[in-house]
Measured scan of single mutants.
Amino acid sequence: GVRVRALYDYDGQEQDELSFKAGDELTKLGEEDEQGWCRGRLDSGQLGLYPANYVEAI
């Protein structure tokens, strides 16, 4: 996976979405899909989806 850092807070709206705060680091686990979602893993171990444009590569 690729380490990325959140640029903005994001509150997951669905069960399969991650929630994070600006500045949090997570691991991107795949390329974004056509809707702009990426699969990732928080350092807590939680897996889920997040909007790709909310993070930057570290």
Results as ranks from 00 to 15, higher is better:
Gly1Leu: 02
Val2Gly: 11
Val2His: 09
Val2Phe: 15
Arg3Asp: 01
Arg3Phe: 05
Val4Asn: 02
Val4Ser: 03
Arg5Trp: 04
Arg5Pro: 00
Ala6Lys: 01
Ala6Arg: 00
Leu7Pro: 00
Tyr8Glu: 08
Asp9Pro: 11
Asp9Cys: 06
Asp9Gly: 07
Asp9Lys: 06
Asp9Glu: 05
Asp9Met: 02
Asp9Tyr: 00
Tyr10Trp: 09
Gly12Phe: 01
Gly12Leu: 02
Gln13Ile: 08
Glu14Met: 07
Gln15Cys: 07
Gln15His: 06
Gln15Trp: 07
Asp16Gly: 14
Glu17Trp: 10
Glu17Lys: 12
Leu18Thr: 01
Ser19Thr: 14
Phe20Ala: 01
Phe20Gln: 00
Lys21Ala: 09
Lys21Gln: 08
Lys21Met: 10
Ala22Asp: 06
Ala22Leu: 07
Gly23Met: 09
Gly23Arg: 05
Gly23Tyr: 06
Gly23Val: 01
Asp24Ile: 05
Asp24Tyr: 04
Asp24Ala: 10
Asp24Pro: 00
Asp24Gln: 15
Glu25Ser: 07
Leu26Val: 07
Leu26Asn: 02
Leu26Phe: 15
Leu29Tyr: 13
Glu31Lys: 11
Glu32Ala: 15
Asp33Trp: 04
Asp33Gln: 09
Asp33His: 07
Asp33Pro: 08
Asp33Ala: 10
Asp33Arg: 07
Glu34His: 14
Gln35Cys: 09
Gln35His: 12
Gly36Asn: 05
Trp37Gly: 03
Trp37Ala: 08
Trp37His: 14
Arg39Leu: 11
Arg39His: 15
Arg39Phe: 13
Gly40Ile: 01
Arg41Met: 08
Arg41Ala: 14
Arg41Gly: 06
Arg41Lys: 14
Arg41His: 04
Arg41Cys: 11
Arg41Thr: 06
Leu42Asn: 08
Leu42Arg: 05
Asp43Met: 10
Asp43Ile: 07
Ser44Lys: 07
Ser44Cys: 15
Gln46Tyr: 06
Leu47Arg: 13
Leu47Ser: 14
Gly48Ala: 00
Gly48Val: 01
Tyr50His: 03
Pro51Ala: 04
Pro51Glu: 03
Pro51Gln: 08
Pro51Leu: 09
Ala52Trp: 06
Ala52Ile: 09
Asn53Lys: 09
Tyr54Cys: 12
Tyr54Met: 15
Tyr54Gln: 12
Tyr54Glu: 01
Val55Ser: 06
Val55Ala: 12
Glu56Gln: 09
Ala57Gln: 11
